Computed example of a mutant assay.
Amino acid sequence: TEDEWSPPPRCIRGRTCSKSDIEIENGFISESSSIYILNKEIQYKCKPGYATADGNSSGSITCLQNGWSAQPICINSSEKCGPPPPISNGGTTSFLLKVYVPQSRVEYQCQSYYELQGSNYVTCSNGEWSEPPRCIHPCIITEENMNKNNIKLKGRSDRKYYAKTGDTIEFMCKLGYNANTSILSFQAVCREGIVEYPRCE
């Protein structure tokens, strides 16, 4: 400045990362340096027969301001799973990956009105997925089928009604018709998409 010097600069120690902080399970770093400067990228490799969750046997990590970037885990290739099996009338709740590490879990869900039977989740173990669930068909009560049997839904005015397996559907005769099947048949139970209609004459 006009009458005096501006404050002198300060030299501060640059951020570094240590090789000793790297812990890649079933993998290694081939470089010989022990200290790395900020933004330095180094290569790693998995042991033979091992790979990361995305199927790669090598890759890189970077020295960042708060330490090394996320360090991978190399797993035995024979223990990994591919995408989980598809199911009819349903699917997974997340985007599918090409490869899953052991003990990964994936959740399933069914389409509307379908009932999930079994566990919502499958688990990857020893290279295979556990048994996936089933999506059970609903019973679809239609006006056409009710008209054929001269019946209607009891206490409802729906022209089409969806019932899940195990649900009880109550029917009654239309005005002017009498029951032609047992009284118990008017409380029909949905069985995996099938329902036996009572009949009125």
Rank of each mutant, 00 (worst) to 15 (best):
R159K: 13
K160D: 11
K160R: 14
K160N: 08
K160M: 15
Y161V: 05
Y161I: 06
Y161F: 15
Y162P: 02
A163Q: 12
K164F: 05
K164N: 06
T165G: 06
G166P: 12
D167S: 04
D167L: 05
T168L: 13
T168R: 15
T168K: 15
I169N: 06
I169R: 04
I169K: 05
E170A: 06
F171N: 05
F171A: 00
F171M: 01
M172Y: 04
M172R: 02
M172G: 02
C173G: 02
C173F: 10
C173Y: 10
K174Q: 15
L175N: 11
L175Y: 09
G176N: 09
G176Y: 13
G176K: 12
N178Q: 13
N178C: 04
N178A: 08
N178M: 12
A179Y: 00
A179F: 00
A179K: 15
A179S: 12
T181E: 08
T181C: 09
S182Q: 13
S182P: 13
S182M: 11
S182R: 14
S182I: 10
I183D: 11
I183M: 10
L184M: 08
L184K: 08
L184W: 01
L184R: 06
L184I: 08
S185E: 01
S185Q: 04
F186G: 00
F186V: 00
F186K: 00
A188P: 04
A188C: 03
A188Q: 06
V189D: 01
V189Y: 03
C190T: 12
C190G: 06
R191N: 12
R191W: 08
E192W: 08
E192V: 07
E192L: 07
E192C: 05
G193D: 06
